[in-house]
Computed example of a mutant assay.
Amino acid sequence: MKLVSFEINTALGKVRRIGVPIDGDETGRIADLTGCYTAYLATGTDEPTPRQIANVRCPPDMIGWLKGAHKSREAAEQASTWIAEQLKDDDDPEGIDGERLVFPRDEVKLLAPVPRPGAFRDFSIYQTHMSKADVPFPKTEQWYVTPPYYKGNCDTITGAEDPVPFPYYTERLDLEFELGIIIGKKGSNLTFEEAKDHIAGYTILIDPSCRDGYKREPFGPNKRKDFCTPMGPCLVTADGINERDIDCRIVVDGETWWEGNTGEPRSFWAEHLVAYVSDNETIFPGDIIGTGTIGMGCSMDIHKWPQIGQQMTFTMDGIGSMTLEIVKGADRVRHVDGMAGLLEYPGEDI
């Protein structure tokens, strides 16, 4: 099953909802899932309070929907079946109060499936990643038994239609192509089998990195990664795709830059990463875990670098595509170039 988070313009301003792509993928019409479930309850059952029940069983935000677990999944399937039946006789079915239920693609802005996750962790598990870099990144013995990750900025998650800013403080912007794992259940100290049951689904995750900022940031990635993290175009439920075998490709302005597969040599599967994170920590519905760059799906390995004005399309078969435009980033204060601090550098002897 595919689900999207989307935004529409209304008389009261922008409204965010979750929906289902009723034409098969993210390029077609989007049905408002909560509205459809409300209408299903009102017309197909004897439920006396359909809107109230729908807001609980099939709420209009993705984290709320994930918290509903199997009950929300059941509601989504009933709503999807109901709207498909209605569309056989009516191109524009209405909700119980006359509201629109189906939106043409050009009236909808796709957001990240989880627009604001509670936590975002990004691993590095692919053996060939950084193997062709100017300075190859060697995999230590520890890398093969404990997967490394960093924690990203949950407030700079962007969607499939948002541009990617090219920061002034880099000359080497790298959009790393990854698989995003979306957590569906709260849990801690999970076995691998238990962890598998905590995965709600998958999405495309892009990890933009400023590759010339390592010396500036010895304590880990901050300015070189925190400016945006695109995700989308949808959430594909875990039973709808095999995360170990997804064909992937990057196309830039019509030219294929890279092709690969999520099954390329990797140290761990998705459930291993989830279990590892849960060790003495708690994961929650809507948390995002990135696999790290798939194979050599990044500029550091293929030696092709994005430029302002280019359109980069990232595709995963079975999930969809995101076309991201590279735009000039803000250039107002330039603090990252260096600031006049309160202390003077004492030299190498200190």
Results as ranks from 00 to 15, higher is better:
2 K>A: 10
4 V>L: 09
12 L>D: 14
12 L>W: 01
14 K>C: 01
14 K>H: 10
20 V>P: 02
25 D>K: 05
33 L>Y: 04
36 C>Q: 08
41 L>H: 09
49 T>V: 11
50 P>I: 11
51 R>D: 10
52 Q>P: 00
61 D>H: 14
64 G>A: 07
68 G>S: 05
74 E>D: 14
76 A>H: 05
78 Q>W: 01
79 A>H: 05
82 W>D: 01
89 D>S: 14
96 I>C: 01
99 E>T: 01
104 P>Y: 02
108 V>E: 05
108 V>M: 07
109 K>V: 10
110 L>G: 06
126 Y>E: 05
129 H>G: 02
140 T>H: 12
144 Y>K: 12
146 T>L: 15
149 Y>W: 13
153 N>I: 02
173 L>H: 09
182 I>C: 07
184 G>D: 04
189 N>H: 09
190 L>Q: 12
194 E>P: 03
200 A>N: 07
201 G>L: 09
209 S>E: 04
209 S>M: 09
211 R>Q: 12
217 E>R: 07
221 P>Q: 08
227 F>S: 00
240 G>E: 15
241 I>N: 08
245 D>L: 07
246 I>E: 10
250 I>Q: 08
250 I>C: 12
254 G>L: 12
257 W>Q: 13
258 W>Y: 15
261 N>W: 12
261 N>C: 13
267 S>Q: 10
275 A>W: 08
276 Y>E: 15
278 S>E: 07
279 D>P: 00
285 P>M: 10
287 D>L: 02
288 I>C: 08
290 G>P: 06
298 C>A: 14
306 P>I: 06
312 M>T: 12
319 I>Y: 07
324 L>K: 10
331 D>G: 00
332 R>M: 07
334 R>P: 01
347 G>F: 11
